[in-house]
């Protein structure tokens, strides 16, 4: 019989973050749908004119309707491709810039934290998910600062004296225990 493993389960790697990827997907979808709608409107209007004109003109030297609208279709398809690609690329660059800005602020905050600054807030950026993450970092820093300040004030109070040796020793040990609790 196999002994069940007591190893704690590894944290699952999550590939989807609806709060971050969701709006990006929606923005791309909006670009594609808008591009398709504009293409449909333009091509439909052009087809109405071109086929009627071709019917009236006579001299039918073409074998299919495609021969009539080949160039028109090519240009509109190229326009659709370029338009959607440019808008999509602009969105990608915006996302990258917003990520750099949002995460850059978090990085700056953590760097400042290593220098002892645990109170300056991370600040906000254009993407809500990064702001939420910044708030989490701020909460962790704030709790650390609170702990340090509390230990410091207790250490100062203890250093002032006027306490019985027994109580002093008790509070000394307690203080050591609390210091051990910083970044365990």
């Amino acid at each position: 019989m196999r002994t069940p493993s007591l190893k704690p389960p590894r944290p699952r790697i999550r590939y989807v973050s609806p709060r971050f990827q969701g709006p990006a997907v929606m923005a791309f979808a909006a670009i594609i749908v808008a591009g398709g709608a504009i293409f449909w409107k333009l091509v439909d209007g052009a087809f109405q004119r071109v086929f009627l004109r071709a019917a009236v003109r006579g001299h039918y030297t073409f074998d299919s309707a495609y021969d009539i609208v080949r160039d028109l279709l090519a240009w509109h398809l190229a326009g659709l491709f370029v338009g959607v690609l440019l808008a999509g690329s602009a969105l990608v660059l915006f996302l990258v810039a917003a990520t750099r800005r949002g995460i850059g602020k978090a990085v700056e905050t953590l760097r400042a934290s290593a220098g002892g600054d645990l109170s300056t807030p991370t600040g906000t950026g254009p993407i809500g998910e990064f702001n939420r993450f910044g708030e989490k970092i701020d909460a962790a820093r704030s709790e650390t600062l609170e702990t340090v300040i509390k230990i410091r004030s207790d250490a100062t109070a203890l250093a002032e004296g006027g306490i019985s040796p027994e109580e002093f020793r008790l509070r000394w040990d307690e203080l050591k225990q609390r210091i051990r609790g910083i970044a365990p």
């Binding site: 944290p11 790697i13 999550r14 590939y15 989807v16 973050s17 971050f20 990827q21 990006a24 997907v25 791309f28 996302l95 990520t99 995460i103 998910e129 993450f133």
Partner: peptide
């Protein structure tokens, strides 16, 4: 989007 952006979303989650 999901495939590419998980390179940012994954570390953030971690």
């Amino acid at each position: 989007c999901v495939y590419i952006l998980h390179k940012v979303a994954g570390p953030l989650y971690r």
